[in-house]
Design a protein around this nucleic acid. Structure first.
Length: 164
DNA sequence: GCCAACGTTGGC
DNA sequence: GCCAACGTTGGC
């Protein structure tokens, strides 16, 4: 089982948007970076991911999700009306892929990027590396555990633990 | 709004 | 295949 971090801008897709989908499940689509796509393709059923919100007043981790469907062609790439339309990708030769994720938990408080930077054990996080722009990054088991420990100080910790 | 970092494009 | 120009991301 692997751990990940998925970025999303709350103005386009928030963790509440995901939670309100049927069964809290939706496609993590619109990824148009080869590096990020390659990570998507290595995801396995049951992998866990942090939901990170970016481009907002307090960027940070807001909850967790689970991979419930492994990589399959991203249909939004074929639709000219979609923001992430890419004519180079076709149903016959798809370039872009997505996975399905299911909402697991929303933290009572965001774990701000600013907070993450202050934790010595998290210095290795890909998210925190200089110039990192990848919207899909791997998280090590140690990093996951360290952040989970942070979560357990939050009031909603019980719910979080139960769901995992 | 600024700008650093980085990926992509396209001329050569 | 090089690399300058350009576009995008995303924190601040």
């Amino acid at each position: 089982m692997a751990y990940w971090l998925l970025k999303s801008e709350p103005e386009s897709f928030s963790i509440d948007d995901l939670r309100q989908k049927p069964n809290g499940i939706d496609a993590w689509d619109g990824i148009r970076s080869y590096q990020a796509r390659n990570f998507l393709k290595t995801m396995q059923l049951g992998d866990l991911a942090f939901f990170y919100r970016s481009s907002c007043p307090v960027p940070g981790i807001v909850g967790t999700v689970k991979v419930v469907k492994t990589a399959y062609p991203d249909k939004t790439a074929w639709n000219p009306n979609e923001a992430h339309y890419d004519p180079k990708s076709t149903p016959e030769r798809p370039i872009w892929y997505c996975v399905d994720v299911q909402w697991l938990s929303t933290f009572k408080d965001v774990i701000a990027l600013r907070t993450l930077r202050q934790i010595p054990e998290l210095k290795t996080m890909q998210l925190l590396q200089k110039g990192n722009r990848l919207s899909v990054t791997p998280v090590t088991a140690q990093e996951w555990k360290r952040i989970e420990a942070l979560c357990l100080t939050f009031p909603q910790a019980q719910a979080f633990k139960k769901r995992l």
